[in-house]
Design a protein around this nucleic acid. Structure first.
Length: 554
RNA sequence: GGGCUUGUGGCUUAGCUUGGACAUAGCGCCGGGCUUCUAACCCGGAUGUCGGGGGUUCGAAUCCCCCCAGGCCCGCCA
């Protein structure tokens, strides 16, 4: 409903002013939408903006499209207020299951996220990537796109060679109950320590890497095995986090299937191509001073080469390519985009997120300095269980456990997604364990309250006659949900949904407090119950788009 | 040194792309509210040079320039 109103007003103003751009602003407490075109026109018409605003408003009053939109003027501002029909139509839409879902679109989108090196467990930095990516994925699906989510497995890297070397020389077996990815990290950390103390051993790692590039079977098998163990651990972690990938794509496949060589051969005709022992591209024109090396003097390819082959493949199979990458990838991401442009292929849209560090400094798998996602989830779940037990002692243990799991994931996912990706953050246990604040559980709670009302209400027939301010404000906020999903997808900004969901819970709580539902009677009761249904539904859709369980009791 | 990026009350943070009506919320602080649909809630109050300086504009947190501070990147690593 909101988008419809927006375009109605926008078009009316465009045709009357002759302006191409008549951006509407949020009306705040004054209105549902507002326009400041009067300022823009004041200069060219050499007229007071107040007079222009009044004139425009007069014209709009006679417009049949504005039958249900109240137009008022306050100084130079033209305010638009939506009437009862807007509210009732919103409710009719929002009570339907799947509210906010757009019809299926033709466009096929591939979204890559997480793609952490398989040399140790996912830590709190990696899951910022996972949560951003997974939330975006959920929004894309809701917006009707045909989406495939991919994890790019870096199975040829030096890190993996070090893990393999470690398994060859230092393996003492997994400890009791040790998760596979944590076990890999232990070997990786130990191997790095060995290599640091005896630099002569580095040559052995180099040999392993060359063998893999030549696809030597025995070594390839070792790499696969090490990587697979780690990925098995990742699956468990991401499953708990409700993060899903449709496909795992292995870097080495692009070497073995010849795509990497084919891509290199395509570059020969480019003026930017240079071959002087090594192969490199000159990307100065695109703003990159460094030589972009794609083949070493020893003939082997580098990470960037295989990544290009991977993106080439994605571009051929999908209409739109999106990557979620850490801010440390900004340079190589830019180089990759520039190169894809040069060869006339689809360049990915890249969303970058800044790092999560620890109070004592940057995280490092190699040095063993990190807080793993598993550890985080364990601790937060423990804390959530204690909390549920205090609040709902009458519930049985299994129910409390189940609520605690949902609450913990809500707290973690929301804490991460609510922050703009471009902000670097410092991980803080105290904050992670505290969900009695602007949080995922807060939104879940609003949903649970709505469920509780509906459960007690029993049967009722829908009605759309809202008279009181908090209910109307809530309905108007519900109306914006589809527009928010659209905005998240267009701008690749999942945190907009986090903000929206919190505001929705705010509105619901205010309504809950001031406008009793079950105690009201007649049409008011029916209308409020309809509103609660719509709110519950919108909260549920919002939560699920955020990857958070919409639980009915907590 | 160069590039990218962030800097908003004591702390965390929205808004910045597309400039407009008293800058968004949370935590913490002060004061209220559970015989009333789940108080993981609600209401009121105090707290702001929107990093600093200049500029553009009728109007700047938002655009431009300079400076300061933090983060990241600058490998024939991945």
């Amino acid at each position: 409903m909101f988008l419809l109103m927006y375009t109605t007003i926008e078009n009316a103003l465009k045709s009357r002013t002759g302006l191409h751009d008549v951006q509407l602003t949020d009306g705040g407490e004054h209105a549902d939408l507002a326009s400041t075109v009067a300022f823009t026109l004041a200069k060219e018409r050499k007229q007071s903006p107040v007079i222009i605003a009044e004139e425009l408003a007069r014209e709009l009053h006679g417009d049949p499209a504005f039958e249900h939109i109240q137009v008022t003027v306050k100084g130079p501002y033209i305010n638009f207020l939506f009437g009862p029909s807007y509210v009732s139509r919103t409710l009719e839409e929002a009570v339907k299951p799947g509210y906010g879902s757009q019809p299926q679109r033709r466009e096929r989108v591939v979204l890559e996220h997480t793609s952490a090196n398989p040399n140790g467990p996912l830590h709190v930095g990696h899951i910022r990537n996972s949560i951003l990516g997974d939330t975006l994925a959920r929004c894309f699906r809701k917006a009707g796109y045909r989406l495939e989510v991919q994890y790019y497995v870096n199975d040829m890297g030096r890190q993996i060679a070090i893990v393999v070397w470690g398994f060859d020389h230092l393996d003492t077996g997994a400890m009791d109950g040790e998760k596979a990815d944590h076990y890999v990290a232990r070997i990786y950390i130990a191997a790095n320590r060995e290599l640091a103390s005896d630099p002569g051993l580095v040559a052995e790692v180099d040999t392993l890497m060359q063998q893999v590039e030549r696809s030597e079977n025995a070594t390839v098998r070792k790499f696969r095995s090490a990587v697979t163990q780690c990925l098995d651990g990742f699956h468990v972690t991401m499953g708990r986090l409700r993060v899903h990938h449709d496909r795992f794509v292995w870097e080495s496949d692009f070497v073995r299937n010849g795509d990497t060589e084919r891509f290199l051969s395509r570059l020969h005709r480019l003026p930017e191509y240079h071959e002087d022992g090594k192969v490199w591209l000159d990307l100065k024109a695109a703003g990159f001073e460094k030589e972009y090396v794609l083949r070493r003097t020893d003939g082997t390819t580098v990470y960037a080469t295989r990544d290009l082959a991977y993106h080439m493949w994605k571009g051929k199979n999908f209409d739109r390519v999106i990557d979620v990458l850490g801010a440390d990838h900004k340079l190589i991401g830019g180089q990759l985009q520039a190169t894809m442009h040069l060869v006339g292929e689809k360049a990915p849209d890249i969303i970058y997120f800044e790092f999560v560090s620890l109070p004592e400094g940057a995280m490092s798998t190699r040095a063993g300095k990190f807080v793993s996602a598993d550890e985080l989830m364990d601790e937060v779940t423990k804390r959530a269980f204690a909390e549920v037990t205090v609040r709902r002692p009458e519930l049985n243990e299994d129910t409390r456990k189940s609520i605690a799991v949902s609450v913990a994931i809500a707290a973690i996912r929301y804490d991460i997604v609510k922050i703009s990706p471009e902000k670097s953050t410092i991980f803080n246990w105290k904050e992670a364990l505290d969900f009695e604040r602007q949080s995922g559980p807060y939104i879940q709670y609003a949903h649970a309250r709505a469920c509780s009302i509906l459960e007690k209400a029993g049967e009722f027939s829908e009605a759309y006659d809202l008279k009181d301010p908090h209910g109307i404000a809530l309905a108007k906020h519900i109306a914006k949900f589809p527009a928010i999903i659209e905005e998240v997808v267009q701008d690749l900004k999942p945190h907009l949904l986090a903000t929206y969901a919190r505001e929705l819970a705010d509105q619901f709580n205010a309504f809950y407090h001031y406008e009793p539902v079950l105690k009201s009677e007649g049409i008011t009761r029916q209308s409020r119950l309809t509103l609660v249904t719509a709110a519950k539904n919108t909260l549920k859709e919002s939560l699920e788009s955020l990857g958070i369980d919409a639980i009915s009791t907590m």
